[in-house]
Design a protein around this nucleic acid. Sequence first.
DNA 1: GCCTAGGTCCCGTAT
DNA 2: ATACGGGGCCTAGGC
Lengths: 264, 264
Amino acid sequence: MRFTRLTHSLEGYIYHNLLNPSLEEAHDAVKESLTRTLLLTLIGLCQVSYQGRASSELDWGDRLIVIKPDGSVLIHQSQGYEPVNWQPPGSIINTQLSEGYLVIKAIRRKPAEELIIRFTKVYALTSAKLFDTSKIEMHLTEEELRQVILENPHLVEEGLRPVAKEWGDFSGFIDIFCRDKNGNLVVLELKNEVADQQAVSQLYRYVSSIKKVSPLVRGIIVAPRITKEARRLLMTLGLEFKQENLSKCSSLLQKSKDSQSKLL
Amino acid sequence: MRFTRLTHSLEGYIYHNLLNPSLEEAHDAVKESLTRTLLLTLIGLCQVSYQGRASSELDWGDRLIVIKPDGSVLIHQSQGYEPVNWQPPGSIINTQLSEGYLVIKAIRRKPAEELIIRFTKVYALTSAKLFDTSKIEMHLTEEELRQVILENPHLVEEGLRPVAKEWGDFSGFIDIFCRDKNGNLVVLELKNEVADQQAVSQLYRYVSSIKKVSPLVRGIIVAPRITKEARRLLMTLGLEFKQENLSKCSSLLQKSKDSQSKLL
DNA sequence: GCCTAGGTCCCGTAT
DNA sequence: ATACGGGGCCTAGGC
């Protein structure tokens, strides 16, 4: 149990909670939710068209629709992580009763996209004000793995020294710049899990750009493993691979830090 | 209006619809939803921990939780397209009352991941059986664009002939194989929108593999536009770019087909 | 605004 | 199972 604070929100609340509303009732509730910028969920029988970067049609069926205060729209079937249709944040949403349907449209420009949902039946509608000031804290991210190598470059190779802020044009894209014990430039590409052909290509792009200026530059992929084809490509391109489980390293280092701080 | 069929489901229904239930009531409803494989939505004050490929902590706040019959779990804050935490389909979900919390855990192996949600308050809980046999129909997909070029190779270059099933080892990865008017092999890489460095790298990998066997192979990116850096890389690698808006072509061709079929 | 790269990416498909 | 590429990817960070 990591959290010690236990709070009860006095501000979050449900605004609408309708069971089998008429389309008119649902329409009114949707309109009110939009003006009050509430989180809105509908479960109902609907049909969906999308036109924009691609286009799609989804015939009648029961789905869960989520409309967020920021203009996000999600349409979920009863399976799958991903919404079957959606609109990203910033969309302009409106609703109308038309030809016997409850119609919800979500439009955005740039790219020009339109999502149209038509309901013939709403089984349940809930709208709520969510109070939530917390932000997610992520660990074992690439940035943390980067720190592990920056502080322990010997994990990759003896004599490696990170050089920061050199080669400004590239440093935004390149995971880590180093010099090896011979003073040659080394570009590191870190991967959390398996390194594939794409990772190798990416490293190669950086290395070959730099090669024009500094011909002796090396490129090393640092990852727990590498696919067979990626390894072949790597060798063809004269790049290197160093096996290293960065997540594990990070955990171990964290533990050693923890035990040190306990001793203090 | 594309759909002529209008159906009213007689089978989709709401099972639970609770407003401000006690944690015990919510717990019972969650348990019943899981055994009956219903779609479950909860709005409540909760705290979330995740450990797996990465790890994360999300402190107390109001969120929407969706649990699907296939074991997907989504935790949505009031902003953003993406869930702040989630578990993909196939997760094993269980619930318990523990230390004054309603706890929902979603676990999967391979990769080993655990998501734990703790509620102190549930504002609303809805569970439903969704009847939905429709599958989304997508248009202007890569496969459709591929058909456009296969049927109209002159859009890329005069005298180009698609060759199918040749070079079997690669054909799974390569968008289109052709021979040009001189009989040389040509690999086409199609992009719906902008072609970037990654697209160029990818084409280069294929072309250089084939070059070992057939030295005169060419590679052409077909896309409405290309980024500046991608163009530089393309030229360095001896590849080519043909500007062509495939989506637009596809639409135009579709229209001409439609008008032809009307005439018949 | 464009462009690049990451993601607990998810997802289908081919091997 | 693994690996590779697509996605209406979305999202964050540079410039």
